[in-house]
């Protein structure tokens, strides 16, 4: 069955839909967590520490966190691999372009591929910046996420990279969520408007929620 799914263009889209929804669920949780930065360093840092102790005493320190990380890495790899393979197929299926060109589909639909690449690059930077601290501006302090976040958004490039990526995320989710519903066969005429509304609301809330943090630092609400 796994073979049938992976070998079919429809099956590969299913892999994209499921992995995308897993990442989307994570993003909603992540965004809500981020908002705790507006309640001060104490609450934010405490929340960050709690993420490492979730599930104790059943789970050991950081086990849950690592489990989430593994699932996310698998989702990203599955999403990117199927996107790459499907895109290759799509480009090969339409080698000759029309001479008479027309603007096609919505902006969100047309930017799925480039948006995905931007998001993949962003994830790499984001982890190197705020998880490992490898490319962090100023001294990265393990266990002091509040200060680290403030440092990142005190640089112009930190803000630019983040805001651009979050706008790309909004567009990606806008088309992606609705598409995933169609791929999984849960869309219908009656549900179409509701699905599109949920996609737009999710896209808007995620983008606004994430961008609130750099805006907070820039305006001095968070310092």
């Amino acid at each position: 069955m796994a073979r049938t799914v992976w070998d079919s263009s429809v099956g590969k889209k299913t892999v994209m839909a499921v992995s995308g929804l897993i990442m989307l669920l994570y993003l909603v949780v992540h965004m809500i967590g981020n908002l705790k930065i507006f309640f001060g360093a104490g609450e934010f840092n405490h929340y960050a520490h709690w993420l490492r102790t979730v599930g104790e005493p059943f789970m050991h320190y950081e086990w849950t966190l690592w489990l989430v990380r593994i699932v996310l890495v698998l989702a990203v790899v599955a999403h990117a691999t199927s996107a790459y393979q499907l895109s290759r197929r799509d480009i090969k299926a339409r080698p000759d372009k029309y001479v008479h060109k027309k603007p096609r589909a919505s902006y969100a639909t047309r930017t799925m591929r480039w948006g995905g690449i931007i998001l993949a690059l962003f994830i790499v930077w984001h982890i190197l910046d705020l998880t490992t601290g490898t490319v962090h501006s100023g001294g990265f302090q393990e266990g002091h996420p509040y200060q680290n976040v403030v440092d990142t958004f005190s640089t112009w490039y930190g803000n630019v990279i983040y805001v651009v990526a979050m706008l790309a995320l909004g567009l990606h989710v806008r088309h992606g969520f609705w598409s995933a519903a169609q791929t999984l066969g849960v869309g219908s005429r009656a549900r179409d408007r509701a699905l599109k509304t949920v996609a737009n609301v999710l896209a808007l809330l995620l983008t606004a929620g994430f961008i609130a943090v750099p805006v907070g630092v820039m305006t001095g609400v968070v310092s």
Binding site: K12, K13, A93, A105, M112, W178
Partner: peptide
């Protein structure tokens, strides 16, 4: 798929 058609990206065209 075998005929070399592309996949669906729900563009709606």
């Amino acid at each position: 798929d075998a005929e070399g058609f592309g996949g669906c990206t729900l563009a709606g065209e």
